[in-house]
Amino acid sequence: MPDKEKLGVFFGCTTVGAPHLLEGLVGFLVKARIDYVPLGKDLCCGVPLLLAGYHREAGAHVQRVKKHMVEAGITRMVTSCPHCYLMFREGFPNDFGIELGFETMHFVEFAVELLNQGKIKLKLHKDMKIVYHDPCGIGRRGPGLHQEPRSVLASCAEVVEAERADKLGTCCGGGGLLRASLPKLAVAAAKRKIIDDYLNKGTDIIVTSCPFCTLNLTDGAGEITERGFNVFDLPMFLAENMEEE
């Protein structure tokens, strides 16, 4: 065990590419007074290469990513992107035989830890209702983090459930490079999901823990005329709803 933790935060290209997502994550880290080494601001984890079928090229790319991380000398890493998370946890060792030698956490796990340790505290909103959208990457495709994000949100407001949630939660339509290949189809999927699952839940706040879900649900919500929705990535939401000391 190293004496002192050196925490890396891997930003991921989707968060870096969307100013409000980046602002939300950085805002959280500042407010929570997290000491961290920023990583992946100009370097992709390699997932898009795998999703495009460029397996061989991804093999060379991940060596660059590994070097970037090893040079940073971190002992633990957090990322808010489920796809980066899965890449480090599963893709690196299973597809490329790379052991990073430190643990990678998803932001949801990190938030649970900070709350449990009393390092952050959320403002209590008595009348606020939130619906949580399960991203596939940390849900059914990954470690099944369904209760954890809900428990974080429940310390702040009432969490209401869609009929289909958790492992069977319907997809936002934003993954698998669909936002690149058929953006209108991706957004139509998000719109349909919100109408089917969230329109009659008595809330206009959707929180999720994936930059792709956040962007796609935001675009889908933008096409709904019946009601406006506010879609948050978890870091953004926590940054806005944290007690400041």
């Binding site: 059914r140 339509g173 669909l178 058929l182």
Partner: peptide
Amino acid sequence: YSCALCGRCK
């Protein structure tokens, strides 16, 4: 390239 790869069908 029309699949969001969400894995719900599995």
